[in-house]
């Protein structure tokens, strides 16, 4: 197996995640796209760790998983709060900081 197989797959997933973040209006869907990006990074971490025969890749993939769990927890709490206050999770309405 070539490492580029994994890296290219990860890159495509990353690009999909970017697309999702930019185009989705629903807060939860944006969070899901973020998960796509994090997972693509994880693939890279583990793949390059295996390539260089280093355990660091796996360890940091674990850390990323942990951080992602924390991120989803807080992110969803925020989304729920927004929903409670505005009865909508549409991010394009969240522009009170407009210049």
């Amino acid at each position: 197996m070539y490492v580029s197989q994994f890296a290219v797959l990860a890159a495509v997933l990353f690009a999909m995640g970017v697309y999702g973040i930019l185009v989705r209006r629903n807060g939860i869907l944006v969070l899901m796209s973020v998960e796509l990006i994090l997972n693509s990074v994880n693939i890279n971490l583990v793949a390059f760790g295996a390539l260089r025969d280093s355990i660091a890749g796996e360890v940091f993939a674990l850390f990323v998983i942990t951080v992602a769990a924390a991120e989803v927890g807080v992110g969803l709490a925020i989304v729920l709060l927004i929903y409670r206050n505005r009865r909508s999770v549409d991010l394009s309405e969240m522009d009170l900081m407009k210049g």
């Binding site: 185009v23 944006v30 991010l91 394009s92 969240m94 522009d95 900081m97 407009k98 210049g99």
Partner: peptide, 8 residues
Amino acid sequence: RMQTGKVQ
């Protein structure tokens, strides 16, 4: 105008 307030 660049500062739309839209995170995305």
